[in-house]
Design a protein around this nucleic acid. Sequence first.
DNA 1: GCCCGACAAGTAGGCTTTCTACGCATGAGG
DNA 2: CCTCATGCGTAGAAAGCCTACTTGTCGGGC
Lengths: 113, 113
Amino acid sequence: MRAQALHGHLDALLLAVLEQGAQHGYAIIEALRARSGGTLDLPTGTIYPALRRLERAGLVAGTWSTVNGRERRTYQLTDAGSRALAGERAGWREFSATVGRFLGPAEPPATPA
Amino acid sequence: MRAQALHGHLDALLLAVLEQGAQHGYAIIEALRARSGGTLDLPTGTIYPALRRLERAGLVAGTWSTVNGRERRTYQLTDAGSRALAGERAGWREFSATVGRFLGPAEPPATPA
DNA sequence: GCCCGACAAGTAGGCTTTCTACGCATGAGG
DNA sequence: CCTCATGCGTAGAAAGCCTACTTGTCGGGC
């Protein structure tokens, strides 16, 4: 899937991943790929700038650590980040409900029971 | 709601509105506002260029008509537009399912029983 | 007669966000 | 020695939507 379509929701996804525990950029990329079943395969050039943006905004806190001689920047959700995530979640719900009203009520094939 | 978040889905919304019958730009804006319960209130500067883009792409066909001395451009879904809409719908479903996996499975606050 | 608000379409310039492509560095395996 | 996987990062370009503005008709209030 084009992450292009994410536009504006990428930040929310990153926060959501970090909600489950602090991680470094590379691991976040893999987490997104894994949790989405391979659908979300975002390039580093998308993730790293986004993380720095979130850091500048105070939603995540980054700390350097060295693992096997390799420098890692581990990002952790801040309080503000948690609050922002809650807002993003609410926003996503409204957004998906609204768009879903036009593009199909988000009723997947479903196997409804 | 910021239509900014639409990014890439606006075309799909327009096609979806036109699916229910040909309409002119101004009416489309009102249809979006009405059907979304007021959530989607898109400015003309967003809709009109988008419609022309869709027209250039051959997804809608526009025809001029004069009503009460006022010029109207009525847009109608083309075959290609219908097909595109189907694709957009599928794309939306995948997209919302994927993002929903991270931001909450579309489970609203719910008052859980 | 004049002005304003609703209807109706459109353009121009700017902003934000993401993508592509590249650079730099370490450690392991061939 | 060279390459690949890990790991971080920047630069420039492309895409999409927004704000603000312009043009024009019609109807109502003053």
